[in-house]
């Protein structure tokens, strides 16, 4: 293992987003706050049906998780896209770093960015509510796994995209619908039965629900089933990243 090289790449990927923190941390925080203000006044003091939780509190964990996932995705995908655009990914390919080390460093940085965004958002949003942490392990498990899955999808998307148009396509037609329709803004119990079933095929649904469960102690899924599904999705994503990078998919053709 080239641990020092892996560490260097990780810190490079982390410093890269810290160098542009207005875009990478402040902007996502602002977006989440605006969502919250809008829904706060639109929904008033209403509760989520069947869950007996104020809508406002229901929304906070979902928004935090959504921001984490989007930022994890953005970190890896934009790094690889800018690398392609600047022809800079060659340095990564020339360095004596194995695919495993590259995957580890990229996903580690994605989790770091997601964690920083989450902490900033929670610090800003929590004072407006009286929610508290119910299950730390759930928050950490779903937060980290969600960031790894999305960071990994960002890596794969970055490798796949030839242009920023491709990336926008992926973002707008796959990532955005999956995150928006994953129960950030609603409880699946509010949906017609058939749609509830469909939601169970959306991996993001388990992530958001589990993360929220950690704060509110209520959820739409069975936690033991969700842990299994999320673990499987995390391992699969990491394995896919590792294999695709190892074979140089769309990078070394």
């Amino acid at each position: 293992m080239n641990w020092y090289g892996c560490w260097t790449l990780y810190s490079r990927e982390s410093r890269r987003f810290l160098n542009v923190k207005m875009q990478t941390i402040v902007a996502p925080a602002l977006t989440a706050i605006m969502y919250l203000i809008v829904f706060r006044y639109a929904m008033g003091a209403r509760s989520v049906p069947d869950l007996d939780v104020p809508y406002f509190e229901f929304l906070i964990p979902g928004l935090v998780m959504m921001a984490m996932m989007q930022n994890a995705f953005a970190n890896t995908s934009s790094s690889i896209m800018v690398g392609k655009l600047m022809n800079m990914q060659i340095f990564l390919m020339m360095a004596p770093l194995s695919a495993f080390e590259v995957t580890l460093a990229f996903l580690g940085a994605a989790v770091t960015r997601a964690a920083i965004v989450a902490v900033v958002l929670l610090l800003v949003l929590v004072p407006f509510s009286d929610m508290h942490i119910e299950h730390v392990w759930m928050i950490l498990f779903y937060g980290v796994c969600g960031s790894i899955i999305m960071g990994g999808m960002g890596m794969i998307g970055g490798m796949w995209s030839k242009t920023f148009d491709d990336m926008a396509l992926l973002n707008n037609f796959i990532i955005m619908p999956l995150t928006f329709l994953s129960g950030v803004f609603y409880s699946v119990k509010q949906l017609p039965e058939s749609w509830q079933a469909v939601n169970h095929f959306n991996p993001f649904f388990y992530l958001i629900d589990g993360f929220r469960h950690g704060f509110l102690n209520v959820g739409d899924t069975d936690p033991s089933q969700a842990v299994l599904i999320v673990s499987l999705a995390t391992v699969t994503t990491m394995f896919a990243c590792w294999q695709l990078w190892r074979t140089g998919w769309r990078l070394k053709d």
Binding site: G5, T8, R12
Partner: peptide
């Protein structure tokens, strides 16, 4: 092995001294 590629490539996020430190680190040095 050290390779100077034909096409200009650079890291737009960092300054030359940092770029060299990063490059060295990625080689495990």
């Amino acid at each position: 092995l050290g390779v100077v590629p034909q096409e200009i490539a650079f890291d737009p996020f960092f300054a030359p001294r940092d770029i060299l430190k990063i490059m060295s680190g990625m080689f495990g040095v």
